[in-house]
Every structure is written in structure tokens, then in C-alpha cells.
Computed example of a mutant assay.
Amino acid sequence: MKKQLLLATAVAGLMTFGGAAWAQNVAIVNGKAVPKARLDSLAQQIARTGRPVTPEMQGQLREEVITREVFMQEAEKLGLSASEDFKVQMELARQTILIRELFADFQKKNPVTDADLKAEYDKFAAANGGKEYKARHILVNKEDEAKAIIASLKKGGKFEDIAKKSSKDPGSGANGGDLDWANPSSYVAEFAEAMTKLGKGQMTDAPVKTQFGYHIIRVDDIRTAQLPAFEELKPQIAQQMQQQKLAAFQQGLREKAKIE
């Protein structure tokens, strides 16, 4: 009776130990355990990309880590892990992973706050708020040519037709000089200054010189700037600010490094 009790206890202990071991491993391949941590790590990598790890995908990942173990064992058997090429590639992979972790650690410790995002949005709104202009222009290389076009327009020439025929601006010329709705800050200073002096339906009386040549400008309409709401732009602003912070961190490390 005592022997039977001891045997039962031993069997129960083995079953408990075996269950714990299997819980820690995905499988045993050729006598070598494949730890569950590998599957979890692979699932985390996929989750970081924004893809959900479904139960079906868990099964696929299990097959993936088992297949990798089979291939790894064969490569080890052939002695490939001892080659210089493998060692160099491993070092590069180690560097890549460490650098990725460094950047992730920095971003975790230096998050972009809601206050940062709102301040950046306010700067954007200040630079792009106010009035928007729906303008047309004709761009030519010489002042005399621009003056001649202005004279022709004053005599009844059609702005759109002359723009299509004479404008050197490849973007708007084919569309009759149409620049669509834009904030004055979108243009070079001389162009913006001349345009904002015009009322709806007015045209410049003299050619406007910029670095691109000579412009004849007409304002077709004016409206209050229609800016996207803060919540709409918030994800884009957050991404941009995170990238800027990370770039500054990288540049700072580079500048502090002693390079000989």
C-alpha cells in the first residue's frame, strides 16, 4: 500500500512538471525545446505593425517557429554558425535590434504631450489662418511682354486664353492660370504682397516681378481660411513631432560622440 502511494505521488509530480514544461514550450524538435517566448516575441512584432494577432494566426506562428527551429538545427549541424559571414551578419542584426530598442526607449521616455500638439496646431493655424485667395496668374520672362499682356487684357482679352497661350508656368498655364484656393503664405513675398492688395475681380495694373519672372495676377474670389479641426490633424502632427524629436536625439548623440 505504501509503495503504491509513493508511485502515485511520483507519477503526479512528473505530470505536474511535464505540464509546466509544455506550458513554457511550443514544441520539442529532435529533443530540443522550442520556448513559447519565441512565439510571443513574433506575435508582438506583428502587433507593433497594427495587425491583430487572431487565434488562426497563432497557429500559423506556431508552425513558423517550429519550422525555423528545424532549419536552425540543420544549419548548426552543417557548421554554418561558425562562418565569418554569419558572424558579421549577426553583429549587424544585433546592432539593428539594439538601435531600434534605443529609439523606442527614447520615445517612451519623451512622449509628445497634448499640450505640445495643441501648441503646434496653433502655430499652423496662425500661419495658415486669415484669408484665402482664389487667384490666376500669367507668368512671362520679360517685363515688356507682361505690360503688353496687361494692355491686351484691358482691351477685353480673355485672361484664361492668354494664360494658356503665353504663361510659362507649367502647372497653372494649361488651366488658364488657375492657382486654386491658397493662403498668401503659399507664395513668394512679392507675389503675396501684390495679390493681397487686390479685391475680388481685380487684376494688377503693373507686372509683379519675382524670382520666377513677371506675373500678371487676378483675384477671382476671397474667403476666410477653412482649416481642418485640431482632432483631425492631431495624428499627423503627433507623428511629425515624434520624428522631429527622434531626429534631434540622433543628431545630439552624433555631435557628442568623439570620432577620430
Rank of each mutant, 00 (worst) to 15 (best):
Q211L: 12
Y121A: 04
R254I: 13
G213T: 10
Q89P: 01
A238I: 00
T9H: 13
K142M: 03
A135N: 14
K77F: 09
M15Y: 07
P52R: 09
S83D: 06
A247M: 09
L5R: 14
A127K: 15
D40P: 00
K118C: 06
L153R: 08
G13H: 04
E63N: 10
Q45G: 03
T49I: 05
D85G: 12
E69D: 13
A75M: 12
Y133N: 02
P35I: 00
R218A: 11
K164G: 10
V70S: 05
T9A: 14
F230R: 05
L253E: 13
Q236C: 01
A247D: 15
K147S: 08
A75L: 11
K165D: 15
E145Y: 05
Y133M: 02
F71M: 15
A119L: 07
R223L: 04
N175D: 07
E145D: 12
D205F: 02
A146M: 02
S152T: 12
Q44A: 06
K258Q: 14
D161A: 14
Q242M: 11
N175A: 10
L102R: 10
E84C: 02
L14S: 12
A8K: 11
Q244S: 14
S41V: 00
Q211V: 08
Q58Y: 00
G171P: 06
K2S: 05
L5E: 14
S185V: 13
A248C: 09
Y214T: 02
E120H: 13
F106R: 02
V88N: 12
A229H: 14
Q251H: 03
L227H: 11
G156K: 11
Q243T: 13
F86A: 10
K158Q: 15
I66E: 09
E143S: 08
A146N: 03
E120C: 09
L117N: 10
Q24Y: 00
Q202F: 08
S41A: 08
W22E: 13
S185I: 10
G157P: 06
M72R: 07
E255W: 05
Q242F: 05
V140K: 03
E120W: 14
N25C: 00
